[in-house]
């Protein structure tokens, strides 16, 4: 045996200070704090400048349907933006929820393993396409297509981005709902099959009720995504600050307002500039509440099994 290895090791161990072992945890902890600081940064950024806006504009004006930030006599009613956001999100949900949910049922309850393995990557691919590409697709393909069918549809409208946003969100609804359905224990299904139920009956009467909270959580997350989606609506729904429920007309969402304003020439320090942060704050609170709700719902359902 090579006899001095041991001595070398023992000598090294005496010399070796465990400095890295003391330093590294501090570095990692600091890195972990960055995410907290980011959240604090977002909140402070938004609240600080939004407060200036809320101080400058009377409450009654904020909750009005008149929005004209760059007019000689600017008006800052936020309702057109909220309306635009809800309108496009509703259209998106009407596409994403039925298609997403039925796809999930198909993948989880009907599809063979082989088909599932082929379809899932395509869903992932669809989810990986940047939203700017969807925006281009909505504006240059879906809108002209819809205009041919619906007379009177404006070149910028709520319908086309709504539909495309729905398509974009399908993979989210599908994969989360499918996860929820997959986690339903097979024993429940077998019980129903043993009674002679068809797959559809098992899916509708057993699996969906058992997975309902996970499915609803996926819907809530989808809504949150739609509310926060920016590029599709910025490109395809235009910037008209109309308060309208007409989906053939151009509207503006909260997100599109932020983009229009920052890339425009609203000088720092004006009320218009601060309105950006007020809208941002409302958007942040909306989506945060939705995400917390989704987490709450899905946590509840996890406890069931």
């Amino acid at each position: 045996m090579n006899n001095n290895v041991r001595e070398i090791i023992l000598k090294n161990n005496k010399k070796q200070k465990k400095s890295l072992d003391n330093v590294m945890p501090v570095i990692f902890f600091t890195a972990a704090l960055i995410s907290i600081i980011t959240t604090i940064g977002i909140v402070l950024t938004l609240v600080f400048d939004a407060l200036k806006f809320f101080r400058a504009v009377p409450f009654a004006d904020i909750f009005s349907t008149q929005l004209a930030p760059l007019a000689a006599n600017p008006r800052f009613g936020i309702l057109p933006l909220i309306n635009g956001t809800i309108l496009t999100s509703l259209i998106a949900m009407m596409v994403a929820i039925p298609v997403g949910l039925t796809s999930a049922i198909y993948l989880s309850e009907f599809a063979t393993e082989k088909i599932r393995k082929r379809l899932k990557p395509i869903m992932e691919l669809l989810a990986g396409i940047p939203t700017i590409v969807y925006g281009f697709f909505a504006y240059s393909f879906v809108t002209p297509l819809l205009m041919a069918v619906i007379p009177g549809l404006e070149a910028k409208n709520a319908l086309s981005p709504g539909i495309v946003m729905g398509i974009m969100i399908i993979p989210l609804v599908t994969s989360l709902s499918e996860d929820a359905m997959n986690s339903v224990p097979n024993a429940l299904r077998e019980g129903a099959y043993a009674l002679g139920s068809t797959r559809l009956e098992v899916a509708v009467k057993v699996v969906i009720p058992a997975a309902i909270s996970g499915i609803i959580a996926s819907f809530v997350l989808a809504i949150s995504r739609a509310i926060g989606e920016t590029m599709i609506v910025t490109i395809a729904s235009g910037s008209s600050k109309n308060f309208t429920f007409d989906i053939t007309k151009s509207i503006q969402t909260m997100t599109a307002y932020i983009v229009e304003f920052t890339s425009g020439d609203a000088g720092s320090g004006t009320v218009g500039y601060y309105s950006l942060y007020a809208v941002g704050l409302i958007l942040f609170v909306f989506t945060l509440l939705m995400n917390l709700l989704a987490q709450y719902i899905s946590r509840k359902y996890r406890e069931e099994y």
Binding site: A32, S35, I36, T38, T39, G41, I42, T45, L46, D49, L221, S224, I227, G228, E229, T230, T255, I258, V259, T262, S268, L276, Y277, G280, L283, F284, T287, L288, M290, N291, L292, Q295
Partner: peptide
Amino acid sequence: TLIKTNISNLAGVPSVIFGLLGLTVFGR
């Protein structure tokens, strides 16, 4: 728990909000 919850919530913040953060903190 705080850090974990914070990260999952951060993942759900719309990207346009990060733009506002960047504009205010890094940009200005």
